[in-house]
Design a protein around this nucleic acid. Structure first.
Lengths: 226, 226
DNA sequence: GGACGTGTGACAGTTGCGTGACAAACGTCC
DNA sequence: GGACGTTTGTCACGCAACTGTCACACGTCC
C-alpha cells in the first residue's frame, strides 16, 4: 500500500483530497500547515507528498526545501496559481511535479503512480540477484551456473531444477513437488527426479558421492544446502 | 550535456522547441513522426524525449509504449489537449509527465531537469556507457561495428539484433523477446532469429562454431557475453 | 534376509540448433 | 522502367545434445 501525505491549509480541499486518494487505493493523511506536515513526515514517512504552495506561516517553497533536506520523497505541488515562475521555482526547490487546482483525482493518482514508478526505478528495473551458495553461484538472468567461478554447462531441465531448489534453499522438496514445479507434471515417475539430480551432481559437486550442496533427505526428497 | 529528442509533427512547433531547448542548454533534435522518432532514439539515445500526442500514423500513445519497450528514457508528453483522460492514458502508457501546449520553455526546461534528477538518482545501473566487449566494439550512434578495430559490414537487422543483445549484455534473451524487440513482431517464426544470429556470427566471431561473444543458451535463447 | 529407497550407466526417441539453398523484397543505378 | 546486387525471410536437412525409461547395483532399515 502506498501512503500519501497531503499538506494543504484549506480544510475542505484537504479532506476531499484525502478521501479521494483513499478511494484510489492510497493510504492518505492530511496536515494543515507546513510545520505539521514536516513533523508528520519525519515521524511516519509517507511514500509521497502533495503540497500546496500557499500555506500560512512557512510557505510551500520552504516546505519543499525542508522536506528535501531530510528525504528523497517524491513531491507533487498542487497549487491554485498557474504561473510559470511558480512552476519553475517549485521544481527548482526540489518538487517533482506541479499541477494546477482544480485537478481531477484520476490525473493526480496517475501522476503519483508515474512518479513512484520512476522514483522506485531501481526496483522495477529489477536486477535479479545471483543466488550464491558457497562456491556455487547461480545466475538466473544469465542462464549460468558457476562452481568456483568456473562456468558449468547445465541443461535446461537441470537449470530449472537447480533454480527451484535454490529458491527454497535449505528446505526439503519432495520428488512430487519437484515434478510438479520443474516438469509441470501432475503425475509421473518420481525416479525421473533422481536421474536429473544425479546428473546435476556430476556437474556441480566436487565428489558426487559426497554431495555438499545438493543433498538427499532419505524418504523425503532433496534440498539445496544453504 | 543533456540531449532531448522532440517528436512533433508540426514543423514550426518542432523547430521552435528544438531551438528554444538549445538556448536552455540542452542538445536537441527533432523527429516529425513516431516512426522516425523511434528509429532516431534507437540509434542515438537521447537522454529524454518530448512527444506530441497527435501524430500522423502511429500515434503518441503507441509511440510511448514502443519507446518504453526498449528503454527507460524519461518521457514528457507535450499535447494541445487538456483532457484528464489523455493525461491518465499517457501516464499509464509509460510517460513521466504531461504538459499542455502552449508551454513556457522555462517550465519545460525545469520539468526536464526535475525529471532527470529523479531518473538519474534512481537508475544509475542501467546505463551502458560504451558497448565494448573484448575485441568487439559497437557504436550505436555511428551505426558501426568493429572487430579488433576492423570495420565490419553488418546489415540493419543484424545491427539491431546486436544492439539489443548488447544492451542486455550478460543476460539471456529468448527468441520471443528478440522477435518482439528487434522485429517488433508479436508472433512469428522463432527460427528467424537463429538465422540472423548465424549470419552475425559469421561476421563478428573468429570461429563461428566456437562463438566467444554471441553465445547460445540452449533451450533459453541467446546472450552477448560480457 | 527381505523390503525399500536411492545412485547410476546404457539406450533409444526427441528436441534444439546451425547452416546452406532459394525466392521474394528492397534499393540503386543507369 | 528495367537490370543488378543486397538484404531478408522461409524451408529442409542433419548433427549434436538432451530427455525419459529401464535395469541393475548398492546401502539402509526393519
Amino acid at each position: 500500500m502506498t501512503s500519501v501525505l497531503v499538506i494543504e491549509d484549506d480544510d475542505r480541499i484537504r479532506l476531499s483530497l484525502v478521501l479521494a486518494l483513499e478511494d484510489e487505493g492510497f493510504t492518505a493523511q492530511g496536515a494543515a500547515t507546513a510545520e505539521e506536515g514536516l513533523l508528520t513526515q519525519r515521524r511516519s514517512r509517507a511514500d509521497t507528498v502533495l503540497v500546496d504552495l500557499m500555506l500560512p506561516g512557512v510557505d510551500g517553497f520552504e516546505c519543499i526545501r525542508r522536506l528535501r533536506h531530510h528525504d528523497d520523497v517524491p513531491i507533487i505541488v498542487v497549487s491554485a496559481r498557474d504561473d510559470t515562475h511558480d512552476v519553475v521555482a517549485a521544481l527548482e526547490a526540489g518538487a517533482d511535479d506541479y499541477v494546477v487546482k482544480p485537478v481531477a483525482v484520476k490525473e493526480l493518482s496517475a501522476r503519483l503512480r508515474a512518479l513512484l514508478r520512476r522514483a522506485r526505478g531501481a526496483v522495477t528495473v529489477g536486477r535479479v540477484p545471483a543466488l550464491v551458495f558457497g562456491d556455487l553461484d547461480i545466475r538466473p538472468e544469465a542462464g549460468e551456473v558457476r562452481v568456483r567461478g568456473e562456468l558449468v554447462n547445465v541443461t535446461r531441465t537441470e537449470f530449472r531444477l537447480l533454480c527451484e531448489l535454490a529458491e527454497h534453499a535449505g528446505r526439503v522438496l519432495s520428488r512430487e513437488q519437484l515434478l510438479r514445479r520443474v516438469w509441470e507434471y501432475e503425475v509421473g515417475d518420481e525416479r525421473l527426479v533422481d536421474v536429473h539430480v544425479g546428473r546435476l551432481r556430476q556437474k556441480i559437486e566436487v565428489d558426487s558421492a559426497e554431495p555438499r550442496h545438493l543433498v538427499t533427505v532419505r524418504g523425503l526428497g532433496y534440498k539445496l544446502q544453504r
